[in-house]
């Protein structure tokens, strides 16, 4: 290694190998996946989202939700994601082809959100509805005691009630409630974010993901075994 030329070549080759294997190979191998079309029913999966839902994805990024939440379900051999009711099957590359960006995440202080749009809580029918999401965003500790999620009160507006209360106005039982004659409604970013969250559903069966699993656990239960 006394020759600078060979050191340079080596340095270049080492980097080129790493780039080729870990950056180029994925782009070539899974960079042009197509949605599957079910030949029996004609439905297409996945589909792209647009409008307020796509704006919601941008809100998700801008609030840094990936810092604590993931959007990827692992196989039972690699983690208890499915047993927790976070999905009926593991997620695969095809699930994310229209997600720009794919918000896979890297840390879990909070639950995985890959299927939050279709998740149901067996014991609590109000959970994971839009109204629940708004309340959870406003004050996470009200819907989920012990949560360390930040409060996103700044995504909401306090408005004077003109005529009727807004359908999405938050209902409070404690001193979070606004003064009489006022209501707290979600602002545009909150609405977009919740609209986005309701699109998150990766339960459609895909061959490469293996069969869907119906989980019978206490607490949260997976919504929907294999359908269609």
């Amino acid at each position: 290694m006394k020759q600078p030329f060979s050191i340079f070549n080596g340095i270049l080759a080492v980097f080129a190998l790493s780039f080729a294997v870990l950056a180029m190979a994925p782009a070539l191998q899974i960079g042009s996946l197509q949605p599957v079309v079910d030949e029996d029913t004609g439905d297409i999966y996945p589909v792209d989202i647009s409008g307020v839902q796509a704006q919601g994805r941008a809100v998700y990024v801008s609030q840094g939700c990936v810092t604590c939440h993931t959007e990827q379900v692992r196989d039972p051999s690699e983690g208890a994601d499915i047993a927790r009711g976070w999905g009926v099957r593991r997620t695969v590359a095809r699930d994310y082809i229209y997600e720009k960006p794919a918000l896979l995440g890297y840390m879990r202080f909070g639950p995985d959100l890959a299927n939050i749009g279709s998740r149901k809580d067996k014991d609590d029918p109000d959970k994971y509805t839009a109204a629940w999401h708004y309340k959870h965003l406003y004050d996470p500790r009200e819907t989920s005691p012990g949560s360390i999620m930040p409060s996103y009160k700044f995504l909401f507006e306090t408005q004077k009630i003109a005529g009727q209360e807004d359908a999405d106005a938050l209902k409070f039982a404690n001193d979070d409630a606004p003064p009489a004659g006022y209501q707290i409604v979600p602002g545009p970013e909150a609405r977009a974010l919740v609209a986005y969250l309701t699109t998150l559903d990766h339960s459609h069966p895909l061959k490469e993901a293996g069969p869907n699993i119906e989980v019978k656990t206490t607490g949260t239960a997976a919504a929907g075994g294999a359908k269609k």
Binding site: L22, P26, S32, Y96, I97, A102
Partner: peptide, 11 residues
């Protein structure tokens, strides 16, 4: 598309 940028980011 999709998860490819995530692979690049991990790299």
């Amino acid at each position: 598309q999709g998860v490819v940028p995530d692979a690049v980011a991990a790299w």
